[in-house]
Write a protein that binds this DNA or RNA. Structure first.
Lengths: 255, 255
DNA sequence: CAGAGTGTACTGGTCTGACCATGTGTGTCA
DNA sequence: TGACACACATGGTCAGACCAGTACACTCTG
């Protein structure tokens, strides 16, 4: 009986996939950094020894994952991009739309992230960050007169500043992605906002409360407020038991 | 003075992007369902009136998004796939690897997720899920004798079952991604595990405690235990103040 | 008639070579 | 020194070709 080596499954690796692998690897090994330029397609086909079609297919998937961007006519070649949560938001969005992920799960997740971010922000915010949040609130106040769209932008700016103050980029990224996906999903309903004026005033009041807690360094309160406001905002989406379970997702500093 | 219409920004839409849009739209409108077949590339180039290269580039991005799959030689054409969160996990993983995320941030994030998952699991777990967790614990017990690697796998299985019981896929996915990234980053230190036997026993004891809390439906305790164990495990990585701040990231059901 | 084996037509993967519109950088000209 | 125009390389797209692989129908055999 002949000795049978521990053969491993053979999978055909397509040429463009190997190109993607190598470029992606170079990026994740930091050999290529955001702003750097890839060689032109015609140069790449020489170094990888494949045709331009293959190179282009590889660039398309790298582009669809947000790693690079090609611009016609640019002699400097494709640009390596800064990794952005936007692509994450798009992916989440698609999954939710295809009903792989329930909207209620998304809301739940957002409640957790928002609460945690506010608690951490209260505990860690610097004076500068506090000032930024105050300015953001002032901007919101100013935008109330300019309608829901402008107001919503200012609202986002405030929350971004809160996330930044949490000093945790992952929280920031996931929060951003979740918010983006959520906004997309429920924007239809917000379009026909019944009494936008009241809504804006309410949001503003809520954010002021959160800011006060953050300013006071009261993480527990900040987190609790944030959670309850998100729950209130998306209340009709999530189930009552979820609403109850998520209400006290505290993120409190130890005694 | 001529009347200036409300012009909108013109952005060049590449041909393959429009193809992607249409196919993606058909999928999200449920005109194409998982298992359905797309026309062959040669047919698609006729219906879209573009060249095959363009069709192929479109298919590559759809494939990288996990929406379709092409197999060479299949006369039935590219297959429409069931949307899967796996692609999301990959995206999160890449973001974690790419973004200059401090190890401490990663640990922090994991503490939050783990705590939230255990709390939710305690509140939502079904009997079946509870049994699965018990089996996972038993498996861990059995693997203690087979060394740290086998044990670690069983450990992961237990935590996966906990995440599943939390009934929130986003939590599950992000938890999985964070765990993976964390393992990658600290694997060096774990390789030279000083007293693996003791470590395994400790992990096992911890997991048993968590299981008991989940079994009892005590979300607050489950969350608190999980958080403190993660903190203990990665204690030397995160700063003392983080350790303190994260200790009480509770996820309690309301009274 | 049933089943095993063969054949074939069409598939996707890859390549070559070509054309076009566009952006950059250079060189020119005032 | 400044504005301007040009040339060149780039990405986007196309047409046509070849190859290896798969599904399905067809044939041959028992």
């Amino acid at each position: 009986m002949t000795h049978t080596a521990a053969f491993t499954a053979v999978k055909t690796v397509k040429a463009y996939e190997r190109v993607v692998e190598q470029i992606e690897g170079a990026i994740s090994r930091r050999e290529l950094r955001p702003g750097d330029r890839l060689p032109s397609e015609r140069e790449l086909m020489l170094t990888f020894e494949v045709s331009r079609s293959t190179i282009r297919e590889a660039l398309r998937v790298l582009e669809s994952t947000g790693l690079v961007r090609s611009r016609p006519g640019d002699p400097r070649g494709p640009e390596v991009l800064q990794a952005s949560p936007a692509i994450l938001a798009k992916t989440v969005n698609r999954l939710v739309r295809l009903e792989t992920i329930a909207l209620s799960e998304l809301v739940e997740f957002r409640i957790m992230l928002e609460g945690a971010a506010c608690t951490l922000a209260a505990q860690r915010r610097t004076e500068v960050q506090l000032n930024e949040m105050c300015s953001a609130i002032d901007a919101m106040q100013a935008e109330v007169a300019h309608g829901p769209v402008a107001f919503s932008q200012a609202d986002v700016a405030f929350h971004v500043s809160v996330w930044a103050a949490s000093q945790n980029q992952l929280l920031q990224i996931c929060g951003e992605a979740t918010r983006g996906a959520l906004i997309d999903m429920v924007s239809d309903e917000l379009d026909r906002a019944p009494d936008s004026q009241a809504r804006m005033e309410l949001s503003l009041a809520h954010d002021r409360e959160i800011l006060a807690a953050i300013s006071a360094g009261d993480g527990a309160t900040a987190g609790r407020l944030a959670r309850s406001f998100v729950i209130e905002y998306y209340g009709d989406i999530i189930s009552p038991e979820s609403r109850a379970a998520l209400g006290n997702v505290a993120y409190e500093a130890p005694v």
